[in-house]
């Protein structure tokens, strides 16, 4: 479904070039839930920017269901994103000038072609995140957990093929984070969606099919989640402090 090949992204720093991503290649299959691990500065943000089409790589290609994003114009990538992607941010990033319902309908509304049935399906998602009665509220009236649930609903409402989530529980307390992840997993699995989650939350790893780990802009490891979890548990036993000090940001 998503085929990333030899991805490289470099920035100019004076007269020299600095690689933020270097020779990154992987494949994500339909229905998979992938967790992307990495410390701060490892290149997770840059990779998500490339996959979402918000930025373009220096070299390499990103093919999504046969379409190469790197050959598209900015507007074409935007239209692609609007149709195929749902994005969940750590800071929820709801549009403060729109109500909850309008936030959820935003990607559909932007197409200008949404019909009543599509709108109804989108609003159903709001009910599925247990916020059916808050459609008319503005985001600043909601708690953090509620805002993230709205953000999840917005990312799923237009039935995207791929969901990108960036530390979806990073700003939530433990219990709320659990609830949010349960909802997210249920909605993704029920409809066999594909999701790439960037996180340092090890509880999420247990939900993943595979784990990708970035180190210094290079893909260090692509392992099945169970295997990765076992290895990590062992490592964690040895160096709990190192794991705790890992940056929460990606």
């Amino acid at each position: 479904m998503l085929h990333v090949s030899n991805l490289r992204k470099s920035y100019s720093e004076g007269s020299s070039q600095r690689d933020v991503l270097s020779d990154v290649s992987f494949i994500i299959n339909r229905g998979e839930l992938i967790v992307l691990l990495g410390r701060s500065g490892s290149g997770k943000s840059t990779l998500l920017n490339m996959i979402s089409g918000m930025d373009v790589p220096t070299t390499g290609s990103i093919e999504f269901e046969g379409q190469d994003l790197t050959n598209m114009s900015d507007t074409a990538r935007t239209l692609f994103r609007r149709k195929h992607l749902g994005i969940i941010f750590q800071s929820f990033n709801l549009i403060p000038t729109l109500t909850v319902e309008e936030n959820i309908l935003l990607p559909l509304e932007l197409t200008g072609t949404a019909n009543q049935e599509q709108r109804q399906l989108a609003l159903d998602v709001l009910r599925e995140v247990n916020l059916g009665d808050r459609g008319d509220s503005f985001p600043d009236r909601l708690s953090g957990g509620e805002q993230q649930r709205v953000a999840i609903a917005r990312a799923l409402a237009h039935k995207p093929s791929l969901i990108l989530a960036d530390e979806p529980t990073g700003n939530l307390d433990f219990r709320t984070a659990d609830t949010v992840m349960d909802i997210l997993q249920r909605l993704v699995h029920d409809e066999r969606r594909t999701m790439l989650v960037a996180t340092h939350d090890r509880d999420i790893i247990r939900l993943a099919d595979r784990v990708l780990e970035l180190q210094g802009g290079k893909l260090k490891d692509v392992t099945p989640a169970a295997q990765h979890e076992a290895a990590q548990k062992e490592a964690a036993q040895q160096d709990v402090e190192a794991a705790d000090n890992a940056s929460p940001g990606v």
Binding site: T75, L79, R81, R82, L85, I87, L106, P107
Partner: peptide, 12 residues
């Protein structure tokens, strides 16, 4: 806010 809108598919 504009970035979020762009991320959600709002064209320039």
């Amino acid at each position: 806010e504009i970035s979020v809108l762009r991320a959600n598919g709002m064209t320039p």
